[in-house]
Design a binder for these strands. Structure first.
Lengths: 270, 270
DNA sequence: AGAAGGACCAGTGGTCCGTA
DNA sequence: AGAAGGACCAGTGGTCCGTA
């Protein structure tokens, strides 16, 4: 029941219509519970009333055993609303400005970053359970945490998605101003999510350059970022750029490595 | 060649005869290279001369293609000395006092602990390689490190053995005096290695009790121990004993948890 | 076309049990 | 019997690619 509630909220509360209350909190990146609060504010009574009925189908099984809830008050022309068993995919992300809520079956980037905060909360629960039982205690968001999230009803959280955008979240954590600026610029240019995601690499490499190229240390020294594995591609980019910078330094007779944005040959990675 | 040298040294330099030089260094637990130095001192020229020939057989293959080295100057009645391909097992450990060298096809405990130091050096090499190549850098002795050790010729190092005695090494790291006393007492009582190994758990649990039962924190705060995974059984023992202590504290009306050596029901684990 | 995520795979931590 | 370690196995990190 709890599982289904979370599920339904994520799908229907967050994708379709703007949530007016507490948008400033969600946009600030500070309040981890802002999304839940905002959503609960709008769908206050949803918890007990709906649930399984609000799941969407798209499966071959159970198509004739629909159990339509009589109180479906959504004006929705989506063909996949029904009483099936399988759950539809999350709405795709679009580039939104900080505080902006996505319209029309899309999810915004504040929601994306919120998922990372949710994972952190699930990790903390897994850690507390492990400590109580005297078992190994994970320090990162592992498969175990994803399994726990799913069992807790957060079926919209999955490993491929979270891993895909980790470096975007990293930029959000490490340089929120820069992250916000990039979001506005990407939206301005009308870029899709993939292009914005790609664009997040460069400022991170610049940050790494300033801090001795140690991307692991950068992740580990940030309390909310330290629970995420450094993405392979970001690691490779930092390494390639460092090599390029070192090469440029040698060529120019400089001895400084770790500063400067060298012209490394990293085009094949970006 | 380098591989075979290390291999031969471990097998023949360390098991058969006492090494007189630098025994005090080996016994002190300080000098990581003491065993190598002592062995190289005795078998100075072994490197180039021997090698493959000193390996021992015991395989079904190659039993007719022996290539006996003519310079085998060992007075050895062991039937497995020969020119085969497969390598015999390491000599079993016996309980030795600090500084004592095992005689008669046995290995002593200073040598056991030395293997842990060797693993640490292999880990450091793997870490340096990873950093150079911009790859993930292990913080623990992983499968990768065991593979590296094997490839570097330290075929006498293997995962099951190292994991089996980790808690013994932990006691050696955390309370060398206590560890030494236990070794002397175990030898006095004529115990075999298995009994000594079992006896190593209790003092560790006592140490954990003093430090709030956090065995992970205890391992991680020691520079040489932090690279080893906490053994499952030690973790379970600490947890069981803590529960027992907490129960005893409740029964006695005390509110202190984390001190005291409670009478927990951990017999089934020990 | 752009994107979400089920499901696969190589290599891991853990240790059993056939071996000597 | 006591002990060393090859080899197995469940569950991991990583991400591809069939799906919508």
């Amino acid at each position: 029941d709890n599982a289904n509630t979370l599920d339904a909220l994520s799908q229907e509360g967050l994708s379709e219509e703007p949530v007016q209350q507490e948008n400033e909190a969600a946009g600030s990146g500070g309040g981890a519970g802002a999304w839940e609060l905002a959503v609960i504010g709008r769908y206050g009574g949803v918890k007990a009333k709906h649930g399984v009925q609000r799941r969407t189908k798209k499966g071959r099984i159970g198509s004739s055993s629909h159990a339509h809830g009589g109180d479906d008050n959504e004006s929705d022309d989506d063909p996949d609303v029904g009483g099936g068993v399988e759950r539809q995919r999350e709405h795709p992300f679009i580039v939104t400005e900080p505080g902006e809520v996505a319209r029309g079956k899309k999810n915004g980037l504040d929601y994306l970053f919120h998922l990372y905060e949710q994972c952190r909360e699930f990790l903390i629960q897994v850690q507390n359970n492990a400590k109580e039982k005297g078992e190994k205690c994970p320090t990162k968001v592992t498969n175990q945490v994803f399994r726990f999230a799913k069992a807790a009803g957060a079926s919209y959280i999955n490993k491929p998605k979270m891993r895909h955008y980790v470096h975007c979240y990293a930029l959000h954590c490490l340089d929120e101003e820069g992250s916000n600026a990039l979001r506005r610029a990407s939206k301005e240019r009308g870029e899709n999510v993939g292009a914005w995601r790609q664009a997040c690499y460069k400022p991170l490499v610049t940050i790494a350059a300033r801090q001795g190229w140690d991307i692991d240390a950068i992740f580990n020294s940030h309390p909310r970022l330290s629970i995420w594995y450094v993405p392979t591609k970001l690691r490779q980019l930092c390494h390639a750029e460092r090599s390029g910078a070192a090469l440029a330094a040698v060529a120019s007779g400089s001895t400084a490595v770790g500063g400067g944005n060298g012209a490394g040959g990293v085009g094949h990675l970006l």
